[in-house]
Each structure stands twice: as C-alpha cells, then as structure tokens.
Design a protein around this nucleic acid. Structure first.
Lengths: 235, 235
DNA sequence: CGTCTAATTGAGATGTGTCAAGCGGTGTGG
DNA sequence: CCACACCGCTTGACACATCTCAATTAGACG
C-alpha cells in the first residue's frame, strides 16, 4: 500500500529516466539526453476505465506508460472491437499517431495508471534533434506491421482455441502468470466473442492449465499451454 | 505493341523522375533531388509469376514499381496466405523492410513488370541526406498500420461477401474497372478460399454487377457495387 | 442488502471451409 | 499445327466451428 503511494509521488516520477531507458522509442540515447527528455515529461494519472485518448481525436501528446496497464483498441462502425495492444511500463501508446492526422485507436486504463506525456511539438523537436528516435519509431512500426500480418494469418488460418492459447501464452510471457483481463478483453484480443472465449477457458480450466476468477486469469501450467501454442492444426 | 516495347527501352527508364514524382516515399523532394536519385536507380525486368524477392530474404534493394502490377504476400507456416498489397506504378514494395532484419513478405509479378531499384546502402544514405524521406516512410507505415487494423475489424465483423465487395470496389477505384486478378488472388486479399470467392462472384455476375473471364474481373456497375460496400450488416 | 457487471451455460442457426469431381481455355512440345 | 497437359474456374454436398440470442448465477462495491 505504502509503497504504491510513495511510488505515485511526483518527486519520484520526475526522475523518469529509468523508465525512458527501457523505452524502445528512446533506445540508443545517452543518459544526459534521456534526462533532458525526462525533465519535461509530465505525469498524468488515470483510474481504471478512464480514457487516455479517444479514437478520432487530434493528437496532442506523446505518451509512455509509467505504471499500470493500458489497452489500446479500435472499434468498427458496427460495434465490433479489437484490442490492438496491451501496453505496460515503458511502452508508448501512440508514437506513430503523432505523424498521422488523428488517433486511430483509443487508449483506456485497465487498472491504476500513470503515464508520462510530452507535448506533441516538444516530442517532434526531440525527434528532429535526435534522428535516432525517428529510426527507432520506424523500427517499431515495421515490427508492428509484421505483427498485424501474422495476426491476420492467424485469424484466417487458426481456430479460435488456437488463437486464444497463443495470446494467453504470449501474455503470460510478457506479464507473468497472473493476467488481469476480463473474458471480453481476451476475446477482443483474439477476435472472437466473449461466450466463445469463456467456453475455451472452461476447457483449459478443466485440463488444469489455468484457473480464473472475475477479471483474472491465472496460468497454472505454462508448459502445457505452450504445447498448445501455434501450429497444431497441420493435418 | 510498339509503344510498349519502346517504353521498355533503358533510355526511357533512366529518366525515371516522372515515376519518382508520384512516389509517396519521395513526396516533397525537389526536381533536382529526384533526378539525383533517378540517376542511380537501375531498372529490373520481371515476367509474370517471377519473384522480385522472397519472404525471409535479407533486404538488399529498395524497389519502386515502374510498370505493371506486383503483389506482395505473406504465407503462414500451415499454408494459408494473404495478399498484403497490390502495388502498381509509383508504389514501393518494401520501404519498410530496409529497417527490419528480413523481408516479411514476398513480392511477385502479376504481369510484365519493371521495377526501379536502389541498393540498400544508397537508399539509406539518401534517407540520411533528406530526412523528409524518413518522415514520408513513417507516414506510409502509419497509414499501413491503420489499414491493417481496419482489415482485421472487417475480418472479424463482416461477412465474406462484404469483404469481397469492399475489395472489388477499392481495387476498381485504384486500377479501373478491369482487374487482372485470379479468383485465388482475390480470395487471398479478402482472407477466404477460392471456392467461396467464386460463389460470391457468381452472385455478382447474376446481378449484372460484374462480368469475368479467366484471370480477369470486369466491374460493369460500379455504382451498384459501391452500394454493396461497407456497413450493410447492421441489423 | 441491493444493484450492476462479469461469467456461465444451453440451444439453435448458419456462414464458410473442405473435399471431390468436372469443364474449358491456353500454351507448349512433338 | 495438332494434341495433350495443365491450370483456373465452377458446382455440389457435407460437416462443423463459431456466432447469436436468451436465461441464470456469482462476485464486487457502495
């Protein structure tokens, strides 16, 4: 409790260099350059469920997650939605958006969240000053693109169960074996409905691979989960 | 006949400035900068079906389509494939790949194709020299990413018929009403099977919206096609 | 303690994929 | 120049994974 509150003090966040260090956007920059950036980064606080920005808004800020989890997602005109990314400490929410017209995703806090923000102009001036940042962003974008193609291939070639297992495993690698996600969110990641997600999770639970409670999924047997991952539908 | 052959002469291609002008990668560059680039761009010729590069290869060149159509596609480990893009004059095949480790798509000539190529190092030195190119690339990547998210939303939310109509309309806007595509290629674009594609096309043919022959689809009634496009499945 | 949201389970409908078979045009090699 | 082989196209029958709709239960939070 105490630790968390202390961690939230502005005094602590101002020295955000250690966050920026692990942020791929700023990879390759020196200590002094990072602290130059950290010096002008201001923290913003969000409660669970609050939006950091909305799809369609004009981009004003550049954001990095300082604490907590943020989901970025996109909704279609007829209600369906996909989660684009689950971001945690050091991830940027919208490096790319600053080069586009509008945000094409929304960002929402999954739990208590602190983000560091830079005004758009300020961020862009850093980019101009340190071209390395531009290169990093391109690299991130390229990886992201490839990622989405993989996702499309999964979407057309793998079963829902496969996809869910893939995402569960991937998430457990990134976030550990306790995942704070609702069934709906997991479904939105894998591109399926809440009901189908639940049915698959029930099967995994029956096989003692996971356990779960409200808003929480716990991976009990990561090895078995990995065995279910990827490419088992080749006949 | 004669015109085409004349067009293929090297003498003509060397002055590729008018191609580069319409290439978004080089948007905003001056006439002299373009001709500086054009001067070192060398043409390569490909017959229908030939590969320009393969998924997984190390990127050596930067390519721009000078003539003809090229499809870039990605195949999954279990045989499914998606067409990422149908590129035509002025489109780049792999601006992004030069910042990644490997090509993550393959590029194959759909008909007689001429591409302009720059050695990787040469292209990167231009990028360094003219940062505008880097910005253009980021912009292209961002649009591409957003595009893929839209595609995913379509994939999970729209019917195959919807998706095929969307793609047909989109293609007719870009390439005109005569499309040189096989059913298989169209299916790979929309993320469905050849058979299902054929069934949908048969329906469109019965409604006098399209006509078709081997390797060719002709849009007869673009207005009616547009009416079928997007968002008609809201109940 | 009541309300609201998440999770769960069931039953039913159906869009699409899969497999299989046949047709027709095109180009190539003898 | 003809014939054969190949490739793209087409159609049918069938299976089934997944979505949809609906009703119920359980947990959290004020």
């Amino acid at each position: 409790m105490n630790g968390i509150q202390k961690d939230n003090l502005k005094g602590n966040l101002a020295t955000g260099v250690e966050v920026l260090e692990h942020c791929s956007t700023f990879a390759g920059l020196g200590e002094d350059q990072l602290s130059e950036i950290a010096a002008v980064a201001t923290p913003h606080y969000f409660k669970k469920g609050e939006f950091i920005f909305h799809q369609g808004d004009l981009p004003d800020f550049f954001y990095i997650v300082r604490k907590g989890m943020v989901k970025t997602f996109k909704v279609s005109t007829f209600g369906k939605q996909i989660i684009v990314k689950i971001a945690s400490v050091g991830d940027t929410l919208n490096a790319s958006a600053l080069f586009g017209e509008r945000y094409f995703v929304s960002a929402q806090a999954i739990d208590q969240v602190v983000v560091l923000s830079l005004r758009k102009e300020q961020f862009l001036s850093f980019v101009k000053q340190y071209p390395r940042i531009a290169i990093n962003i391109v690299t991130i974008l390229v990886k992201g693109l490839d990622n989405e193609y993989e996702r499309i291939l999964d979407l057309i070639g793998e079963t829902v169960e496969q996809r869910l297992c893939n995402f569960l495993f991937m998430l457990s690698v990134k976030f550990g074996t306790t995942l704070s996600l609702t069934r709906e969110e997991l479904g939105d990641l894998a591109g399926t409905t809440t009901e189908t997600t639940i049915r698959v999770l029930s099967r995994l639970k029956a096989a003692n691979i996971i356990s779960s409670s409200r808003g929480k999924i716990i991976i009990l047997d990561q090895a078995k989960l990995q065995a279910l991952t990827h490419h088992h539908n080749q006949k």
